[in-house]
Simulated scan of single mutants.
Amino acid sequence: MKKVAEPERDARSSGIGLVVTELALSAGARVSVPALEDTALEYLSAFAESEPHLSVFAADVTDKTQIVAVVTKARARQGEIGAVIACAGIAKPDYFAVWMTPISSGTCR
């Protein structure tokens, strides 16, 4: 499987989405990726220069207008869309810690 080169990996556009992109490309799929304007966008765009089946678009997936624009551009560049895989997530590292804090009875909240 051809790997996307990773300089300093930015957690906002990496992880599962990056691996799914690599797997889809290795299977011969045409892949369009919306990425935030950050380090991930830069290195994915650089990788796309040598990967004809990869298109990268600057977009915030929480903004419907930006996603509509990405879909329009992706269809114009690569044709009809056969599948959509949503891999966006929000990480709050300490979110569950508060629920695992012992209370006076010795149980968790």
Rank of each mutant, 00 (worst) to 15 (best):
E51H: 00
K73I: 03
V70I: 03
A48C: 14
V20Y: 07
D10A: 13
P34D: 04
R109M: 15
T39W: 00
I103L: 05
S105A: 15
T62K: 07
S26R: 08
P34L: 07
K92M: 12
W99F: 15
V68T: 15
A83D: 03
K64D: 15
G106C: 09
I85Q: 05
A27W: 01
E22M: 06
V20T: 14
A11K: 07
T65E: 09
T21Y: 01
V20H: 06
G15I: 05
S105T: 15
A88D: 01
E37F: 12
L44D: 06
G79R: 02
R30P: 02
G17M: 01
A91G: 09
G28I: 06
Y43I: 02
T72P: 00
V4N: 01
I85M: 09
K2L: 14
V31K: 00
P7A: 05
G79D: 00
A97R: 06
A40M: 02
E37Q: 14
T72Q: 11
L18D: 01
G28V: 06
R75V: 12
T39G: 06
A24M: 13
A69Y: 06
Y95P: 00
E80D: 13
C87H: 00
R77E: 10
T39H: 01
P7Y: 09
A58K: 10
M1P: 07
P34G: 04
E49K: 12
Q66K: 14
C108E: 14
G79S: 02
V98E: 14
H53Q: 14
V71R: 03
R12T: 05
A59G: 09
M100Q: 14
A11S: 08
I16N: 09
I67M: 13
V19P: 00
A97M: 11
L23Y: 13
V33D: 02
L41R: 01
T21R: 01
Y43L: 02
Q66H: 10
A27Y: 05
D60I: 04
F96I: 11
A83V: 11
P102H: 03
G15R: 05
K64F: 15
V98H: 13
V56S: 03
L25G: 02
E6N: 12
V33R: 00
V20K: 01
A83Y: 11
Y43N: 08
E22A: 09
S105Y: 01
G28W: 07
A74C: 09
T62N: 11
A91C: 10
G106Q: 12
R77Y: 08
S26M: 08
L54F: 11
A83R: 13
A91E: 10
S55A: 11
I103A: 08
T107K: 13
R9F: 01
Y43P: 00
D94H: 10
P93D: 04
L25I: 07
